[in-house]
Design a protein around this nucleic acid. Structure first.
Lengths: 135, 135
DNA sequence: TTTACAAATAGGAATGATTACGATAGAATG
DNA sequence: CATTCTATCGTAATCATTCCTATTTGTAAA
C-alpha cells in the first residue's frame, strides 16, 4: 500500500488529514519492515519537534484499526508495517532489522479439520531469523 | 513433563531445590494451559505470603532457559506452560482460558525451500480462538 | 471568508508488566 | 556445623504504553 491509498482510506472513513499523518505513513511506505513506536518517533522528531507519544500511539492504533498497518509482537514490543494489499499470506521476519519476506503458503488450509470443535478466531504463522543482508 | 522430571533437570544443572520451586512447578504441571506471572503469583501467595516478584520472574526465566517451560506472548503479556516432552508440534490456544490443544502438523516442513537464502532461527505457528468449554 | 464543531495534538502524569539491586536467608557440600 | 554460593525479600527503577485535560487545527457549512 502506498501513502496515497492510505490517505484515501482515512478520508473515506471521515478522519482528518494532517501533515503528521502523511509523514507517518511515508515512514512505513518506504520499506517492508516491522518498526516500533520508538522508531517512528525518532523519524518524526526532526520535522515535528515535541511530537507527543499520544499522537504516535493513537495514530498507530488508528492505522491498524482501518487496516493500513499490520501489527505483530517481537520481544515484548509491538511492531508495525504497512499492510500488504494482495492476497492472504504470512511473513519471514528478520530479527535484526525487521525486514520481511512474504511466504506464499498458508498452513491453515490443511488444519481446520483437526480443530472441528474449536472456534478459530485468528492465527499467527511467523518465521524468524536473519535476512541475507544481516547474516 | 511432570514435577519430578523438572526437579531432576534443575538438579542436573546445579540449581538448588527450594519449596517455592517445587510449588511453582506443581502449578504448571496440573494443566495444559498458558499462565501469566500474575497467575503464578496468586497461586503462590496463600502458601508463601510475601513472595517477591523477583522470585517469580527469575524462576520463570530459569525454567524457560532450561526447557522446563515454554513461553509465548498473548496480548502484551508473557504466558508460560509446561513443556511438552514428546515430538515437535504447535498449539491451538484458547484466548479466554489459555487452554491448549496440540496440532500434529508442522507447516515448516514444506516451507524451508522457499527461504533458501534466509537463516531461519525460529518460528511460531499458533491458532487462537475459543475452546469448546469457553464458547 | 468566516464560523462552529468535532477531531487531533501537546505535555505530562499514571499504569502495568518486568527488571534490577543491596541485604538477608537458606541449600549443598565436605 | 561451617563455609560457600544460590535464592529470596523488599523495594525502587525501567520501559512501553495508556490516560487526561487544555489547546489547537481541519473541515464543512453558512
Amino acid at each position: 500500500m502506498n501513502v496515497q491509498e492510505a490517505l484515501n482510506i482515512l478520508k473515506e472513513k471521515g478522519y482528518k488529514y494532517t501533515g503528521k499523518r502523511e509523514e507517518m505513513l511515508t515512514f512505513f511506505a518506504v520499506e517492508n519492515r516491522y518498526r516500533t513506536a520508538k522508531d517512528l518517533l525518532q523519524y518524526m522528531e526532526p520535522n515535528y519537534e515535541g511530537i507527543s507519544f499520544d499522537t504516535i500511539y493513537r495514530n498507530l492504533h488508528l492505522f491498524s484499526d482501518v487496516d493500513i498497518l499490520e501489527a505483530t509482537e517481537l520481544n515484548g514490543e509491538k511492531h508495525f508495517r504497512m499492510k500488504c494489499d494482495h492476497h492472504h499470506h504470512h511473513h519471514f521476519i528478520c530479527k535484526e532489522c525487521g525486514v520481511t519476506k512474504e511466504i506464499h503458503r498458508c498452513p491453515m488450509d490443511d488444519i481446520q479439520e483437526e480443530l472441528k470443535s474449536f472456534a478459530i478466531q485468528d492465527h499467527k504463522f511467523e518465521i524468524y531469523g536473519l535476512c541475507p543482508g544481516c547474516q
